[in-house]
Computed example of a mutant assay.
Amino acid sequence: MLVHGITGFDDVGGLIDYFYTIPYNLERSGATVYAASVSAFEDSKVRGQQLASQIVPWADSNGGKVNLIAHSQGAPTSRVALTYQPSRVASITSVDGVNKGSKVADVIRKVIPADGLVEGGAEVIANAFGQVVNWLSGADNQQDAIAALWTLTTPGTNELNQTHGWGVNTSNYCGEGSETVSVNDHSVKLYSWSGNTAFTNVLDILDPFQVTTSLAFIGQDVTQSDGLVDICSSKMGKDLGTHYDMNHVDSINHTLGIHSLWHDPVGQYRAQANRLKNLGL
Rank of each mutant, 00 (worst) to 15 (best):
K45L: 14
E179W: 02
N184T: 12
L149F: 01
P208S: 00
Q54N: 12
F19L: 05
S44M: 12
D96A: 11
G280N: 07
D250E: 03
C174S: 08
H243Y: 15
V80L: 07
F199Y: 05
N169K: 03
N127R: 11
S194Y: 04
S234A: 15
G219W: 06
Y244T: 08
D60P: 06
V33N: 09
S44C: 14
I69H: 01
T93R: 06
G121I: 02
Q220F: 09
D96S: 08
D43P: 06
N158K: 07
Y24R: 13
T151V: 13
D60Y: 10
R79Q: 07
D11H: 15
W135G: 09
S260V: 03
S53V: 13
F41K: 02
V188F: 02
D140A: 14
D207F: 01
Q142K: 15
N184P: 01
H243G: 15
L152T: 14
E119K: 04
N274F: 05
Q272F: 10
S192T: 08
K238I: 15
D43R: 03
D207W: 01
G97R: 00
L279N: 08
M246P: 01
A59S: 09
I112L: 12
V3M: 01
T223F: 09
R270V: 14
L228D: 10
I69G: 00
I205S: 10
L281W: 08
A40I: 02
T77H: 02
T83Y: 12
A128D: 15
F199K: 06
I205N: 06
L51W: 01
V249N: 11
S78G: 04
F209M: 11
A40M: 05
A271S: 15
V12N: 11
A70N: 00
I108Q: 03
S53A: 13
G156P: 00
I55F: 01
G280K: 09
L149P: 00
N201Q: 10
Q268N: 14
L190Y: 08
D230H: 03
N141A: 12
A81Y: 03
Q54V: 10
S91E: 04
N196W: 05
N184A: 14
Y244F: 15
T77Y: 00
G237F: 11
G8L: 03
G138W: 02
F9S: 04
R270G: 04
S214C: 12
D11T: 14
T151C: 13
M1C: 11
E179K: 05
V38G: 00
S194P: 02
N25T: 10
S87F: 08
R109L: 12
H259S: 13
G177P: 02
L203C: 02
N158G: 11
G64T: 11
S182G: 08
L228I: 14
S192H: 04
Y173T: 09
D17H: 13
L206P: 00
G8M: 02
Q224K: 12
P265G: 08
H263I: 07
G116K: 07
P208H: 03
S72E: 02
S29W: 10
D204F: 00
I6Q: 02
Q73K: 09
F41Y: 15
G195D: 09
V118C: 04
N141Y: 05
D204W: 00
K100L: 07
R109G: 11
P23N: 04
G8R: 00
Q73I: 01
S102C: 09
V229M: 12
A273E: 05
M236D: 08
G167V: 03
A126C: 13
T157L: 03
H4T: 04
G74S: 02
S91H: 01
I22G: 01
G241P: 03
